[in-house]
């Protein structure tokens, strides 16, 4: 049985944003350690990330995405607006930390 692991983006202890500390190459067994920021999109939860993927697949058309998801146009527009707000806020937070 294959278990799909979900990348944890928030700390289960304090809800802070997680960073990547260690990267590993499974081909040559090389490991790199440091403190790497996750890309902005990785700060979204699975549902939000799925929405972004569907939106890209629908060529960025809200109309097409709304018929694909079975939601009304303004509902999808609202989902997108909320996501834009979250991404902008995440970018601001990440910049502020630098």
């Amino acid at each position: 049985m294959i278990v799909q692991k979900i990348l944890p983006v928030t700390c289960p202890s304090c809800s802070g944003r997680m960073k990547v500390q260690r990267l590993h190459c499974s081909n040559c067994d090389t490991s790199i350690e440091g403190a790497f920021e996750l890309p902005v999109l990785n700060h979204l939860n699975a549902e939000e990330l799925d929405f972004v993927l569907q939106f890209v697949k629908a060529s960025g058309s809200i109309k097409d995405l709304s018929s694909l998801l079975g939601y009304s146009y303004p509902t999808v527009r609202n989902m997108l607006d909320d996501l834009i707000k979250k991404i902008v806020q995440t970018e601001k937070d990440l910049k502020a930390k630098k």
Binding site: S72, P74, T75
Partner: peptide
């Protein structure tokens, strides 16, 4: 109903 119906259809 507006989660699913809006615009010209509504």
């Amino acid at each position: 109903p507006f989660i699913k119906i809006a615009g010209a259809k509504a």
